[in-house]
């Protein structure tokens, strides 16, 4: 009986591997990227790349487990959603108003700990932001936001 349950479970796990995840492609050459087109300090750029870019850019790095269902479904969903809201790889193609909206949101989310999502630093310990890190990102975003309207 126990053997049978294990067998069924394994069969299910194998079968779900064939369900397409719709995982967005990773693209590494993005001419409209915010970091290459604007004077972003290296320290901030590195924080953004390690803590935001997996979901909020086209430069997603997919770890091995993101190829294994059912985790792959969650990863695919988060990346899709993340890019839909904010995609730093497409920055230069956005209207000024939309850029302002994103930076306003970014400041709110990063300052009160809403982003990165809780699960992200659990899987990526290097993406844990200290209070000082958060302040650094917020300060940059505020200055960058104001520079759009000078």
């Amino acid at each position: 009986m126990k053997k049978k349950i294990w067998f069924i479970l394994i069969v299910i796990v194998v079968i779900i591997q064939f369900i397409p995840t719709g995982r967005p492609d990773a693209v590494n050459n993005n001419p409209n990227d915010v970091l290459i087109n604007n004077p972003v300090p290296d320290s901030v750029a590195s924080l953004l790349t390690t803590t935001c870019y997996d979901c909020h850019s086209n430069e997603t790095y997919y770890p091995w487990y993101s190829y294994v269902a059912p985790v792959s479904w969650l990863v695919a969903r988060d990346v899709k959603e993340g890019r839909k809201h904010v995609n730093f790889s497409e920055w230069e193609s956005l209207y000024k108003m939309k850029k302002a909206e994103i930076l306003d949101d970014l400041v709110d989310e990063v300052s009160d700990g809403g982003m990165p999502m809780l699960i992200y630093p659990l899987m990526h310990p290097e993406a844990k932001l200290t209070k000082a890190d958060r302040q650094m990102i917020v300060d940059w975003a505020e200055g960058f936001g104001e520079s759009l309207f000078e």
């Binding site: 939309k98 306003d104 949101d105 936001g145």
Partner: peptide
């Protein structure tokens, strides 16, 4: 700040 006002209105 200006960018925030524009952002929120958007």
């Amino acid at each position: 700040k200006t960018y925030k006002v524009v952002g929120k209105l958007t």
